[in-house]
């Protein structure tokens, strides 16, 4: 398929333009939510990549937190606040961790895979909560972010971060989309369908899973780095504890696996529902969140994106075959 026909690429680019324009219109608090959605959406995108081979991780806060702490520690101990450098390091360290753990994890499937991830994230949580050098449960606060030679302050910094995050996330989403479209990307659907047959075809299921896992780790680190720059603070309870991993899976389910755009929309919906529930029902906001998730599972099992797919197929334009999900 040529570049020009790829609706997802067009959609992503339109989204990029729209977000950059929105920057001038939306109030600060909403822009903050948008940036956070990009961060969480990236992690959920990582889960989507894994899901292509039928795997899901209940511990991706491990990579989210790893990326976030890399950025935080660089600011605290090395005085490095440059966004390019810190994000790059956050992504790379998370990727390396995923690469290392991948050798072990690629042998597991199903619920074992999910839980083993959780075990590792809880070990990281324990280390972080224990060590005062790493900020203990109070966490680490960041110095103001800089961008190469550009060091904006206050509101200008928030604008810069937003533009920066939007462009980077766009790049990341495009890369992931192209990867999923490729043969290697498609092969993993076969891992989910029947791994042993895949082996007879001469492909290694384990290696395919490993590659996917590293990608999801990189995306987790990226999301964590963006999140910590947005929040300006990193602590184990809101970045590494197991319910954080639950939130990512929540977003992935909410979004559906249909398209790389979906996780970002899902993340935004998640943030908005949470904000609204928090405002209107301060004592029972968890009930609202849980209820929403249940409703999605029961009535929209393929996530919000299935609304778009449904709309499309009714309008006669078939969705891209590579991105169709089996129910």
């Amino acid at each position: 398929m040529s570049w020009r026909q790829d609706k997802t690429l067009w959609g992503l680019t339109l989204g990029l333009a729209a977000l950059l324009l929105l920057n001038f219109v939306v109030p600060d608090w909403f822009r903050n939510i948008l940036t956070l959605s990009l961060a969480r959406g990236s992690v959920a995108l990582g889960l989507l990549v894994l899901w292509r081979c039928g795997l899901i991780s209940f511990g991706h806060a491990l990579y989210f937190g790893f990326g976030a702490y890399t950025v935080g520690l660089m600011s605290r101990y090395l005085g490095i606040t440059d966004a390019f450098l810190t994000i790059a390091c956050g992504v790379v360290t998370a990727g390396l961790l995923a690469y290392g753990l991948g050798f072990l994890l690629r042998q597991y499937r199903g619920i074992f895979f999910a839980l083993l991830n959780m075990a590792f994230s809880m070990i990281l949580y324990g280390v972080l909560a224990k060590l005062e050098e790493l900020g203990s449960t109070d966490g680490i606060s960041l110095e103001a972010t800089t961008y190469l030679w550009y060091a904006p302050l206050g509101a200008e910094n928030k604008t810069a971060l937003f533009v920066f995050a939007v462009i980077l996330t766009w790049g990341v989403a495009v890369l992931v989309h192209l990867y999923l479209r490729s043969t290697l990307g498609n092969m993993t659907t076969a891992v989910r369908e029947n791994e042993i047959r895949l082996g007879y075809l001469g492909y290694s299921g384990e290696r395919a899973v490993h590659a996917k896992y590293v990608i999801s780790g990189l995306l987790g680190g990226f999301g964590g780095a963006i999140a910590v720059l947005t929040i300006g603070h990193v602590d184990p309870d809101s970045m590494v504890y197991w319910p954080v991993s639950g939130d990512f899976v929540f977003i992935a389910i909410l979004s559906g696996t249909g398209n790389v755009v979906a996780p970002f929309i899902g993340a935004l919906m998640y943030e908005l529902i949470r904000t609204y529930a928090f405002d209107q029902f301060p004592g029972i906001w968890q009930l609202i969140m849980g209820g929403t998730l249940l409703a999605i599972i029961m009535f929209l099992p393929n996530g919000l994106w299935s609304l778009v797919d449904r709309g499309r197929s009714r309008a006669g334009a078939g969705a891209l075959p590579a991105e169709r999900e089996e129910g």
């Binding site: 608090w29 909403f30 929040i231 603070h233 990193v234 602590d235 809101s238 904000t275 301060p282």
Partner: peptide
């Protein structure tokens, strides 16, 4: 009055909401 549960990230987001929204 609002809830403080959920760690630093939620609190930062909520503070922005309360002040700016």
């Amino acid at each position: 009055v609002y809830d403080e549960t959920g760690g630093g990230t939620k609190q930062v987001t909520e503070l922005r909401n309360k002040v700016q929204k």
